[in-house]
Simulated assay, not measured.
Amino acid sequence: MPTYQEFRQFCKNDHLGRAMLADPARAKVREAVMAGASDALARAAMRWRVGNAYYSFLREVYTVVELRFRGVELQVHPLADALFRVDCWTENTAVSLHVENAKYRNGPSQGRKIPTGRLLADLQPPIDFKDIALKPASVFGSVHLPVSAQLDDTAAALSRGR
């Protein structure tokens, strides 16, 4: 997997990277500046959002690989993530990974993001839900991953659910 810095270089130097990512991001920054934001603030906000999305992707891939390594058979699909906030699932359990944040998501009821369990509560037949909650990162510019104990506990819980 490329580092975030390598990913940024791809977006900057590769024709496809510019067309898919860098050019649309620059257009949104210009739009924010035209709406009154400072250029520095708009660029920093875009960098923050892109970095968060990239590190989130790395965190999800790492988690799935580690859980599979622990013997858990998992399924993954980008639409399950985008539409239902399900990062992966087993036969009857949806798994969601998130970093706790009081404004975004912190436990089952705090924050603006609806937890997966509430979002899919009426699903028939019903399924179980497993959250992997990470405390906020303490280092800027480094991917924030679940620790081995969290992955071990999650693998054990998912294996019991079979």
Rank of each mutant, 00 (worst) to 15 (best):
T3S: 07
E6I: 01
F7I: 05
R8I: 14
F10S: 01
N13C: 11
D14I: 12
R18S: 02
M20E: 10
D23Q: 15
P24W: 00
P24H: 03
P24N: 04
R26M: 06
A27E: 12
R30H: 07
R30N: 07
E31D: 11
M34H: 13
A37R: 14
S38Q: 06
S38H: 07
A40C: 08
A42R: 01
R43S: 06
R43W: 12
A44I: 07
A44S: 10
R47I: 12
R47C: 11
W48F: 14
V50C: 05
A53F: 13
Y54K: 02
S56W: 11
S56M: 12
L58R: 10
R59L: 02
E60L: 09
V64W: 11
L67E: 05
R68Y: 04
R68W: 11
R70M: 04
G71E: 00
V72W: 05
V72G: 02
V72F: 03
V72Y: 08
L74W: 08
H77W: 14
A80V: 13
A82M: 13
R85S: 05
V86C: 01
C88R: 03
T90P: 00
E91M: 14
N92W: 06
A94Q: 05
H98Q: 09
H98R: 09
V99H: 05
N101A: 09
A102P: 12
K103I: 12
K103D: 13
Y104F: 13
K113Q: 15
P115M: 05
P115S: 00
T116E: 06
T116A: 03
G117D: 09
L120P: 01
A121N: 07
D122F: 10
Q124Y: 09
D128P: 08
F129P: 01
D131N: 11
A133K: 09
A133C: 10
L134W: 07
K135L: 14
K135A: 14
A137R: 09
V139K: 10
G141D: 06
S142K: 15
P146Y: 05
S148G: 05
T154Q: 08
S159V: 11
R162N: 11
